[in-house]
């Protein structure tokens, strides 16, 4: 078969080789970069843990170099745990333990998740309310908007422990203080996004509502609110990630006994490095889940509102 008769010949599109096709997608690049990262991690774990292992072995080192490498990568309390130790710890504490057990990552993730969700709901509601106020009242816009932006330069995470301690002194403990920190972190992206979204209808559309003699309330419900939905979901993705960070940091001060943040802190105190990394992995999984959920919700809502799938 000559080149002329090959399938796709003459269309100007060269049939791509397997390698070219794989590397023009996303999967292969992402996988290879992840592999490189894991390789770097192993090398780093070995070089950081090796000195301690040498001291541990002393003069009588059994086995050859390979056995030494294996021991180095499987220390009980390594300086930097190796990836397979972390993976093993995560799997053990996720699937093999009872959900109610204190060592179960599912249990800790659940505790963090509950305050994240409460804070996220509060923050989103607050953000939407502030945005509606800003769009409709000039005084609010002029006086609030600069402060809302300035409020984000306050490193609120740094004061999270104080808020927890002070609220505990008043008698408010448990879910709410952590959720308040999440609220503070998550209202900002929602406010900014919603202000943009509520202002997104074109002048043409606003004029059309005007010719219909629509009241401000009608314009709000029938034009501004629907137009703001894509903006709302985009900022909710940012907000849900932020409120997870708030919940985790809210668990850091001593006193919190459960949650991913508490797990991180106790790991730091007792040098349980593998546990710390496992907690971090659990937090990342929860974050990915939350963002995916918001993404699915946005697709469902937008389809229900008649948007064409992009």
């Amino acid at each position: 078969m000559s080149a002329i008769a090959a399938p796709g010949a003459g269309t100007g599109l060269e049939p791509l080789g397997l390698w070219a096709r794989l590397s023009s997608g996303r999967t292969l690049p992402v996988l290879s970069i992840l592999l490189v990262l894991i390789a770097i991690w192993y090398v780093a774990a070995f070089s950081l843990n090796a000195p301690f292992q040498r001291r541990l072995d002393g003069e009588s080192a059994p086995g050859g170099t390979l056995a030494f490498v294996e021991r180095t990568l499987n220390q009980a309390k390594p300086t930097l745990p190796s990836p397979h130790q972390v993976a093993q710890n995560v799997l053990e504490n996720t699937f093999l333990r009872k959900v109610t057990s204190n060592r179960s990552l599912v249990y800790h993730a659940g505790v963090t998740l509950s305050s994240t969700v409460l804070g996220f709901v509060l923050g989103t509601t607050l953000g939407i309310l502030i945005a509606v106020g800003i769009v409709h009242v000039v005084t609010l816009e002029r006086s609030l908007m600069p402060w809302i932006i300035a409020s984000q330069t306050v490193p609120i995470l740094a004061v999270a422990p104080m808020i927890i301690v002070v609220l505990a002194a008043v008698g408010i403990t448990g879910l709410l203080p952590k959720a308040l920190i999440s609220t503070y972190l998550s209202f900002f992206p929602v406010t900014v996004g919603m202000v943009k979204g509520l202002r997104s209808p074109e002048t043409n559309h606003l004029d059309l509502m005007h010719t219909y003699n629509a009241s401000p309330a009608q314009t709000f419900w029938k034009l501004r609110l629907p137009a703001s939905v894509p903006f709302l979901f985009a900022s909710m993705k940012v907000a849900v990630a932020a409120s997870l960070v708030g919940a985790i940091v809210g668990e850091l001060p001593t006193g919190a006994v459960a949650g991913i943040g508490a797990k991180l802190l106790s790991g730091a105190y007792y040098s349980q490095t593998v546990d710390m990394w496992a907690a971090l992995v659990a937090g990342s999984v929860v974050a990915a889940l939350l963002v995916t959920l918001v993404g699915i919700a946005s697709r469902v809502v937008e389809r229900a509102m008649g948007a064409r799938p992009a």
Binding site: S23, G25, A241, V245, I260, A279, G283, S284, A288
Partner: peptide, 19 residues
Amino acid sequence: LRRGLLPIGNMVSALPIIG
């Protein structure tokens, strides 16, 4: 490199890196 790093970077921005 871009096709590999961009999805990873987008995902990492949602993670609680402070941990």
